[in-house]
Computed example of a mutant assay.
Amino acid sequence: MLGTLHPMAVTALLLGVDGGGTGCRARLTDLEGQVWGEGAAGPANIRFGLKESFASVMRATDACLEQAGLSLADTDIVACLALAGASEPTHLAAARTYNLPFSHTLITTDAHAACIGAHGGRNGGIIIVGTGSVGWGIVAGREHRVGGWGFPVSDEGSGAWIGCEAARRVLWAYDGRIPWTGLLKRILARFDGDPHAIVRWMGQAQPRDFGVLAPLVVEYSARDDAVACELMRGAANHIDGMASRLAALGVTRLALSGGLAASMERWLSPQTRERLVTPEGDALSGALQLARLEAKAMAQSLLAAQNG
C-alpha cells in the first residue's frame, strides 16, 4: 500500500531501480521501508545507450514521485540504480559520470541487486533468465559472476538466445535441413512468410527484439513441439552449466529470477533443482537494501566528521 505524506515533512528517501533489457521498475521508500511510490518505464540496459537508459530511469522515478505527491526539489534521494550492462567497466564508468538529479547515486548491476534481494544480503546465488542471462553469487563477502557478457557472444539460455536460435531454425526449415513444426511456421508467418525479412530484421534487432520470440517457444514447448522442446532443453543446459559453476565457487543456495525463470525451472537438471530456493525478494528490493546501506554509511560518515 502506498503511503502519503506532506512534502515539507520529507528529509530523505530511498529510490531503488531495477533496469533490464526489456524495461525498468522503480520504487520510492522512506528509511523505514514504507513505500511512497512505484513506477515503470522502458529498457534500461546501459550497454545500448546511456541516454535511453537514464531517460527510462527518470520516467519511472517521476511516476514514483507523482504517486507520492512530491517533486525532486522536495526531497533528498539516495538512489541505487541496478542496471543491466553495468558490469562492463567502461559502461559503468560512463554511467557514474552521468548527471543525475539525486542527492547520492549508487550504480550497480541488476544481477548484484537481484542476488542481494533473493537472499537478504546473505550468502547465496542467483541466475537471471530474462532477455539476457547471468549467474551471480556472494560467498563470504566475495562476489562471483558467471556469464552475462552480453548477447550474442554470451547470455546463453536467455530470451534473446532462445529467440535467435528459433529464428535460425526457421531458416534451416526453409532450406529443407530440418522438418517444419508449428512453432517454425508461426514464426515465419510473423515475417509474412519471407525468410529475407528475417535477415533484414536480424541486422537491426536488439536482444529484446529476439526475446519477443521466446514466449512463443515456451508456448509451443507445452504442446510438445519438437523444435520448441529442443530449444528449452538447450537453454536449460546452459542454465545448468551456470549453476554448476556457481556451486563449484561455494554457492549452496540458488534462486532463479527473470521473466523466463518460471518456464525454465521444469527443464533444469535434478542437480540444479535440488539447490533452488524461493527468492526472498527481487532486484528492486535488493536495490533498496543497497540504497539503505549507502544512506546509513553516509550518515555515519557525517556523524564521525562532526564528532572529529
Rank of each mutant, 00 (worst) to 15 (best):
G132Y: 04
G132P: 04
S133C: 08
G135M: 11
G135S: 08
G135W: 02
W136A: 00
G137D: 05
V139K: 12
G141R: 09
G141A: 12
R142H: 12
R142D: 12
R142G: 03
H144D: 00
H144W: 13
H144F: 15
R145Y: 10
R145V: 12
V146T: 01
G147T: 06
W149R: 08
F151Q: 00
F151S: 02
V153M: 13
D155Q: 05
E156D: 04
G159A: 05
A160L: 06
W161Y: 13
I162W: 04
I162M: 13
G163N: 06
C164A: 14
E165D: 02
A166D: 05
A167V: 14
R169Y: 07
R169I: 08
V170H: 02
A173W: 12
R177F: 15
T181S: 13
G182W: 03
L184W: 09
L184P: 07
R186S: 10
I187P: 10
I187L: 15
A189Y: 12
A189I: 04
R190D: 08
F191T: 09
P195F: 10
H196S: 14
A197H: 13
I198W: 06
R200F: 07
R200Q: 14
M202Q: 13
G203W: 14
Q204K: 15
R208I: 08
F210I: 01
G211T: 08
V212K: 11
V212Q: 14
V212C: 03
A214M: 02
P215T: 11
P215Q: 10
V217L: 05
E219H: 15
S221V: 05
